[in-house]
Computed example of a mutant assay.
Amino acid sequence: MEDFNSMISDCNLNDIDFFEGTFTWNRANLWQRLDRFLFNNEWIADFPMTNVEYLNRTLSDHSPILLNVNNINHSVSYAFKFQNMWMHHVEFTNVINTNWSAPIYPDNNITDMIRLWAKLSRFK
């Protein structure tokens, strides 16, 4: 597991958060989130509206995963709208910290206001 986690880190892969459900596998009283999608920064930059949804299990002990790729027109600028409800979500601080510390695509060496703009754009 440590090797796999190291590979994820070394390859700068990100696990996009999910909309519904938290567990993808269960057996008896054991529930785990085993299955997930991993994305690189280029994917996230090109398809920022991508999201993952875990569907209800049927016959398998794994939940199917639905990847929604919502391609938006990059020439259109959308206003940022923050909803206070997210501040009460248990993972809010972790999502902010993970996003803020992630490398900037495509050049993590950018500095100053361009770096700030890139990070804020990713938050949006």
Rank of each mutant, 00 (worst) to 15 (best):
33 R>G: 02
35 D>H: 02
39 F>R: 03
34 L>V: 08
48 P>A: 00
43 W>V: 06
58 T>W: 09
46 D>P: 04
30 L>Y: 07
85 M>I: 15
38 L>Y: 12
74 H>Q: 11
49 M>G: 10
69 V>Q: 06
32 Q>I: 10
56 N>R: 10
84 N>M: 12
62 H>I: 05
67 L>W: 01
33 R>C: 02
61 D>R: 00
44 I>P: 07
69 V>K: 06
55 L>K: 03
97 N>H: 08
53 E>F: 07
102 A>N: 04
27 R>V: 06
46 D>W: 06
51 N>W: 13
63 S>R: 10
67 L>Y: 00
41 N>R: 11
75 S>G: 04
61 D>T: 01
91 E>A: 11
91 E>C: 13
31 W>S: 06
95 V>D: 01
45 A>N: 14
99 N>A: 08
85 M>F: 14
54 Y>G: 01
76 V>I: 15
31 W>P: 04
78 Y>D: 05
66 L>S: 01
84 N>L: 12
60 S>Y: 04
98 T>I: 09
105 Y>R: 03
43 W>A: 07
38 L>P: 08
74 H>Y: 09
88 H>P: 02
70 N>K: 13
99 N>S: 13
37 F>Y: 08
51 N>K: 14
43 W>T: 06
70 N>D: 14
82 F>V: 08
60 S>T: 02
35 D>R: 00
27 R>C: 06
93 T>W: 10
77 S>T: 11
53 E>T: 13
90 V>H: 09
52 V>L: 03
85 M>P: 03
85 M>N: 11
28 A>M: 11
42 E>P: 05
97 N>P: 04
59 L>I: 13
87 M>R: 15
98 T>D: 11
89 H>F: 13
83 Q>P: 02
30 L>G: 05
93 T>R: 15
72 I>A: 11
93 T>C: 11
69 V>I: 15
58 T>Y: 10
51 N>T: 15
85 M>Y: 14
96 I>Y: 06
63 S>P: 08
36 R>F: 09
66 L>D: 01
85 M>C: 14
63 S>K: 08
71 N>Q: 15
102 A>Q: 04
64 P>R: 00
102 A>P: 06
31 W>M: 13
40 N>W: 09
92 F>A: 03
42 E>G: 07
66 L>Q: 11
39 F>N: 02
35 D>T: 02
63 S>D: 02
90 V>P: 06
62 H>S: 00
99 N>P: 01
44 I>N: 02
81 K>L: 10
69 V>P: 08
83 Q>H: 14
78 Y>E: 08
43 W>C: 10
37 F>S: 00
65 I>A: 00
27 R>T: 04
74 H>P: 15
90 V>A: 04
69 V>T: 11
97 N>T: 07
47 F>A: 03
70 N>H: 12
89 H>T: 05
81 K>Q: 10
96 I>T: 04
41 N>G: 15
